[in-house]
């Protein structure tokens, strides 16, 4: 057994925002009937949280639930806890049609922070990131330039972005270009 490593090993870049690869993150996909009692209680048992409403996230990186689709949640937890949590979730939902799988290593997580964070994101995603339209607690799956991404804000100046591990370098490159000095937009 060796130390697991994230895609870019915590690479960082400072431009008009701070861009960080946020290291290893536990992520578990759960597919099932989100309104089923067994699913709700298994989730509650493992994550300590209720199933979030559509388009929202509850909790945070250390323990969170992201609404991915009407029959899919993404559970966030410490990377080292993911396998154990998969087991517990599987046990909890074993009598109902469902799929629980560890996807921690299939993904990379980035953090974009600073007063210009909304602007930098708005250069890459076809999403309204104005303060009235996008607020902490919302969870959005979209595209970031040419690849799929999922994102949320933990506070007004901080975005967290999930992408596939294989394109981590591409996403990091996008964020570097979008945060180049002198590229402030001043639109929000």
């Amino acid at each position: 057994m060796s130390e697991p490593v994230s895609a870019l090993q915590d690479a960082s870049h400072d431009g008009i925002v701070a861009v960080r690869e946020d290291g290893l993150q536990g992520m578990i996909t759960l597919r099932g009937d989100l309104s089923a009692a067994a699913v709700g209680s298994a989730i509650k048992d493992v994550a300590g949280l209720a199933v979030p409403e559509g388009g929202r996230i509850s909790g945070d990186r250390t323990g969170g639930l992201c609404w991915m689709s009407p029959d899919e949640l993404l559970l966030l937890c410490p990377h080292e806890d993911a396998d154990a949590n998969v087991e517990r979730l599987q046990q909890g939902v074993k009598d109902t049609h469902s799929l629980v799988v560890n996807v921690s290593d299939a993904r990379a997580l980035f953090r974009v922070s600073g007063p210009a964070a909304r602007e930098v994101m708005a250069k890459l995603c076809p999403v309204d990131f104005s303060p009235d339209a996008f607020t902490p607690g919302m969870f959005r799956r979209t595209r970031m330039a040419q690849v799929p991404a999922a994102l949320w804000m933990s506070d007004d100046g901080t975005f967290h972005i999930i992408c596939f591990r294989s394109v981590a370098e591409y996403v990091f490159g996008l964020l570097k270009v979008a945060s180049q000095p002198g590229s402030e937009v001043g639109a929000f």
């Binding site: 559509g54 388009g55 609404w67 689709s69 009407p70 076809p126 959005r140 799956r141 979209t142 595209r143």
Partner: peptide, 12 residues
Amino acid sequence: PYCGVAADETEL
């Protein structure tokens, strides 16, 4: 109709 997002054509 599933997630309520007014999606851009480039997301569809």
